[in-house]
Design a protein around this nucleic acid. Sequence first.
DNA 1: TCAAAACCTGAAGAATCCTTCTTATTTTCA
DNA 2: TGAAAATAAGAAGGATTCTTCAGGTTTTGA
Lengths: 195, 195
Amino acid sequence: MNTVEAIFEATIQVLISDGPGDLTTTRVAERAGVSVGSLYQYFPNKQALFHAVNERYLTMLAERVEAACLAHRGARYAEMADALVSTYIAVKIERRDVTIALYRAAAEVDVAEIVEAMSQRIEAASQAMFTTASDAKFANLSTVNVMMLNVLCGTVRNVFERDMSELLIDGGLRTQLTLMFCTYLDAAKFPPSEA
Amino acid sequence: MNTVEAIFEATIQVLISDGPGDLTTTRVAERAGVSVGSLYQYFPNKQALFHAVNERYLTMLAERVEAACLAHRGARYAEMADALVSTYIAVKIERRDVTIALYRAAAEVDVAEIVEAMSQRIEAASQAMFTTASDAKFANLSTVNVMMLNVLCGTVRNVFERDMSELLIDGGLRTQLTLMFCTYLDAAKFPPSEA
DNA sequence: TCAAAACCTGAAGAATCCTTCTTATTTTCA
DNA sequence: TGAAAATAAGAAGGATTCTTCAGGTTTTGA
């Protein structure tokens, strides 16, 4: 394994086992099996390393969601909602420990910028998808779309941070969130469905 | 002002201006206009101070939500949803800087316990309220209720941390979240409304 | 082959930070 | 009033941490 790769992985492992408060250059180097000096050969400082790890993870997340949105253009809106929710949760659940570790570390000001950038990528991809829904047009899609993504990201984070395993393993979160989005989208449909 | 009170307020101010990473006993004492020695007269260590500040804030939040839930028993479920959303957002928006500062500081393991305890208080109060809805019974209220609160807490946090001012000032967050809950509750109603 | 470049090492400097402890001041209350 | 208790002050100890640097080892490529 590459030295840089080892450092990346070690950073995540330290984050998982010791938390962001105990993420020290010494510990990362030790875990990566290299010296502190080597670490500073590739990263100008601790902050840069931390930034890189977060950027990598969030970029991967954004790409996966973008791909899913692209793949569901022209589908029915209920399928779109399910795809969005399912993909997002799937990525997050794939490496649960990493997900939780990075959620905890997200407090740093530095990370906020990355989160913002990736949020906008995802929002754009999602909105582009819903615009092509085969069975509905939406009145104020922009607002609705922003809401859904805030709800999706926020709720998933909350569930992970509270470690509500039941909701994750039995798919309850996915099912309920999809249902919620479907009813919400239905209400935003244009022209409105007669009730 | 009390010394303890001054220390509490100073802690929040340091959290707001310098962030949780630079929350030092020296800085807090300085800002509070007391010596470090005095700080340690009231709190055994920095952690305890931090814990106390968070507990105080979250307890207040829980109490306000509980009161709102109690006040809306027997109402229509749409009104309940609005009350829940409105109250929660109102409390969070009242002192926006404090809200944001504590969100950022919530990464500490110590805080997770308090968050969990308060979440359960709020969940219980909310469920008790929705049980008394005058215009509907809900099939699996427990699941629906847990979902709504995760969505509420998660989404609001997301919006604050991303600093999406538009959604807060024009009431868009409140309106949309309430609408989403109403459509969701409507789908969970028993017996189901004919579509 | 062999010099230059790249890479690695780990001790040490410089800067903080948490916490304690001794001393001083103020308040309590008998 | 006056002594005991409570409160306050802030310098200093002890422990970490980030980062640099001088000097080795390995790889490259001509």
